[in-house]
Simulated scan of single mutants.
Amino acid sequence: MLIERCLGPVDLGDKPLMQAALEKLWITDRERLLSCARRHLALIDFYADRDAGLEGKLPAPTARPKT
């Protein structure tokens, strides 16, 4: 799951959009962006923990901002 490719932005098509539809697409884009960022941060933490374990060191807990 951590190495899955992130979903790209929503296709807006080539027709004018009503504000409600645009807002819904914006929310979908935002959810995709946040999901992608969380996965990448989790992957970074995984590798840091793994590498520290291989070196016989315990990693210091890292506080990640909640997004």
Results as ranks from 00 to 15, higher is better:
Leu2Ala: 10
Leu2Phe: 11
Leu2Tyr: 05
Ile3Leu: 08
Ile3Phe: 06
Glu4Ser: 09
Cys6Ser: 02
Leu7Ala: 09
Leu7Trp: 08
Gly8Pro: 05
Gly8Asp: 11
Pro9Lys: 03
Val10Thr: 10
Val10Lys: 01
Val10Trp: 03
Val10Ser: 01
Asp11Ile: 04
Asp11Leu: 02
Gly13Asp: 00
Gly13Lys: 00
Gly13Arg: 00
Asp14Asn: 03
Asp14Ile: 07
Asp14Val: 14
Asp14Glu: 05
Asp14Tyr: 04
Lys15Glu: 03
Lys15Phe: 04
Pro16Phe: 09
Leu17Tyr: 08
Gln19Leu: 15
Gln19Ile: 10
Leu22Gly: 03
Glu23Met: 02
Glu23Ser: 06
Lys24Arg: 12
Leu25Ala: 13
Leu25Arg: 01
Ile27Glu: 09
Ile27Gly: 01
Ile27Pro: 00
Thr28Pro: 01
Asp29Leu: 04
Asp29Ala: 04
Arg30Leu: 08
Arg30Lys: 14
Glu31Asp: 12
Arg32Asn: 02
Arg32Pro: 00
Arg32Gln: 04
Leu33Asp: 13
Ser35Glu: 14
Ser35Met: 06
Cys36Gln: 06
Ala37Asp: 12
Arg38Ile: 07
Arg38Cys: 06
Arg38Phe: 15
Arg39Asn: 03
Arg39Ala: 00
Arg39Gly: 01
Arg39Thr: 00
His40Leu: 03
Leu41Met: 08
Ala42Ile: 03
Ala42Asn: 05
Ala42Arg: 05
Leu43Lys: 03
Ile44Lys: 05
Ile44Pro: 01
Ile44Ala: 04
Asp45Gln: 15
Phe46Val: 12
Tyr47His: 07
Tyr47Ser: 02
Tyr47Ile: 00
Ala48Gln: 12
Ala48Glu: 13
Asp49Lys: 10
Arg50Met: 15
Asp51Thr: 08
Ala52Glu: 05
Gly53Pro: 00
Leu54Ala: 10
Gly56Ser: 05
Gly56His: 01
Gly56Gln: 06
Gly56Thr: 10
Lys57Gly: 07
Leu58Thr: 10
Leu58Cys: 11
Leu58Tyr: 08
Leu58Gln: 13
Leu58Phe: 08
Ala60Pro: 00
Ala60Trp: 09
Pro61Met: 00
Thr62Asn: 15
Ala63Pro: 03
Arg64Thr: 10
Lys66Tyr: 13
Lys66Asp: 04
Thr67Gln: 03
